[in-house]
């Protein structure tokens, strides 16, 4: 197996793990935010809330990622 193929696989595996982590945490957070008392079905307002919550969670993830990255760069410049 050549280096390129191995690296491709490593990158795919990391991307899958990252997506799974996001999915799991997002489900946890949005369930807590949107489902007060679990009823017999996911009603319309709950589904809308889940969709909105997912979008905002991903926004929050990106904001946090940028903030952390800029902090790392500042810390590196300080040394």
């Amino acid at each position: 197996m050549d280096t390129g193929t191995i690296m491709e696989q490593v990158k795919v595996q990391i991307a899958v793990a990252n997506a799974q982590e996001l999915l799991q945490r997002m489900t946890d957070k949005c369930f807590k935010k949107c489902i007060g008392k679990p009823g017999s079905t996911l009603d319309n307002s709950e589904q809308k809330c889940i969709a909105m919550c997912m979008d905002r969670y991903m926004d929050a993830w990106n904001t946090v990622s940028r903030a952390y990255n800029s902090r790392l760069q500042r810390e590196r410049a300080r040394i």
Binding site: I14, A17, D55, R56, A60, W61, T63, Y68
Partner: peptide, 27 residues
């Protein structure tokens, strides 16, 4: 890179609880 992402997951988890009341149509 993976370590960075893992850390972002942790921060988002903690900071979501601190900062987001009700998810609106925009952040």
């Amino acid at each position: 890179k993976a370590q960075f992402q893992a850390q972002v997951h942790n921060f988002t988890d903690v900071c979501w609880d601190k900062c987001v009341e009700k998810p609106g149509s925009k952040l």
